[in-house]
Amino acid sequence: MNIELSSPQNEGPRRGDGEPLSEGGFRFQDAPGSKSITARALFLAAAARGTTVLHRPLVSDDTVGFAEGLARLGYRLERTQDRWSVEGRARGPVAEEASVFCRDGATTARFLPVLAAAGHGVFRFDASAQMRRRPLGPLTRALRSLGVTVIHEEREGHHPLTVRADGIKGGHVTLDAGLSSQFLTALLLVGPLTEQGLAITVTDLVSAPYVDITVAMMESFGVRVHRDGDTFTVPAQPYPAIDYAIEPDASTAGYFLAAAALTGRRVTVPGLGSRSLQGDLRFAQVLARMGAQVTLTEDHVTVTGAHGGRLAGITVNMRDISDTVPTLAAIAPFADGPVRIEDVYNTRIKECDRLEACA
């Protein structure tokens, strides 16, 4: 992506994915789609009856790996740059035997074994060395409590693993989602494919806004999740196929919003506004606390940096928006006072130890 920040003193024609604003600043024309939403949409499309069309999906190593994993499981996909179609099936994978390499993708490595469990057959999953180190134990225990046979081939609670699937009956399950909200998301997404539906009680939950994304997207696909305190109830109800537009990625947009805050310039991202599904848009409010001016409408967000790019030090709990921690860490040394980031232990078990990487 070709990105340039402009100011009133630096106007002129621009080429690439953005355009200057007449009063100065920079506006994205075509921000990349959300990775989180693309992964969930691929699962939902595969689980739906009929052919779902996804518009403006993110094309990245993770999402392409997810799509290729679906193909290995027997799903039919057609992909162009801006439009992916998936022929879904409400009974789990078409294939009765498959081997899937999940690359570095956490959603691929956690969602696809759960989708496979709804089918019938033997499915093996492996991943990169880093993904092999990331935990799966809470999700594995939940699946086993639902009667699914999951065999970890080398280290308990980690890839590689084999799922011997014979459908999921459903019922009640208790889940610890304190290390990753993806464990809960995977079970929520598969709930409508079970015989009886699912009631999932969480004992701990991190990155809750990502679960909100999941619940909202499931409703777009015709299935409503009921929440009562720490228990989520999902009916056994087939998803219908739909056309679904992927909104821009809020985590990625955060880099450029932070750049505006730091340089005293302005950036606008269309497609990310008050109606956005993504909790990471709250990062703009973190920038506001540091002195930037934030304007949020229904369909766009604009961040304008304070004069001279002056940033105030803050203390902020980022448990729910931990994917934006490295972005804040990058601009923190320029603040007038200390920046303290709290409650983000789960960032140590991402694709790398993000806290150590930032340090």
Rank of each mutant, 00 (worst) to 15 (best):
D249S: 00
P248N: 04
T231V: 13
Q237V: 05
G271Y: 05
T203M: 00
V267I: 14
T214S: 09
P238Q: 10
L257W: 10
A241L: 01
Y244D: 08
R227H: 13
T233P: 00
S251C: 14
V225P: 04
G222E: 14
L262C: 08
D228W: 11
T231F: 05
Y239R: 03
D228Q: 14
D243H: 05
T214A: 07
R266H: 05
D249M: 05
S207P: 14
P235V: 11
I242F: 03
A253D: 04
G222Q: 14
P270E: 04
V267P: 00
G229W: 10
A261E: 11
G279I: 01
P248S: 07
G273N: 00
T268W: 06
T231S: 07
T203Y: 08
I213T: 13
R266L: 08
A261I: 12
V269K: 01
P209Q: 10
E219D: 15
V267G: 02
Q237Y: 09
P248H: 05
V225E: 06
L262T: 11
T263S: 07
V211K: 02
T252W: 02
T263N: 03
V223M: 10
V211L: 05
A258M: 05
S276L: 06
R265L: 12
P240A: 13
V215S: 12
Q278R: 01
P209A: 11
Y244N: 02
P248G: 01
Y244T: 10
T268P: 02
Q278F: 09
Y255V: 13
P248Q: 07
R275Q: 10
I242T: 10
A261Y: 14
V202W: 00
V269F: 06
D230N: 12
P248C: 07
R224L: 15
T214F: 07
S251Q: 06
A216V: 12
G273A: 03
A208V: 14
V267K: 00
Q237A: 10
D228A: 15
P235F: 11
V202F: 00
D230S: 14
G222P: 08
G264S: 04
D228R: 15
S251T: 15
E247M: 03
S220E: 15
I213Y: 01
G254Y: 06
A245G: 02
D228G: 08
A260V: 15
L262I: 11
I242Y: 00
D249L: 09
T233E: 09
T231K: 15
M217S: 06
V267R: 00
A236T: 03
S274I: 13
G271F: 05
F221Y: 08
V206R: 04
A245C: 08
A241G: 09
H226M: 13
V202I: 14
D243G: 07
R227W: 14
D243S: 08
S276D: 05
Q237P: 00
H226V: 15
F221W: 07
A259L: 13
P248R: 02
T203H: 12
T252N: 03
G273R: 01
D243P: 01
M218I: 12
M217F: 11
L257H: 05
A260H: 04
A250K: 02
G264R: 03
Q237H: 13
G271M: 08
A245D: 12
Y210W: 10
D249E: 07
Y244E: 10
T233W: 06
R224I: 15
I242R: 00
M217K: 06
D243C: 04
A216L: 12
E247I: 11
T268D: 02
P235G: 10
R227L: 10
D204F: 04
T252F: 07
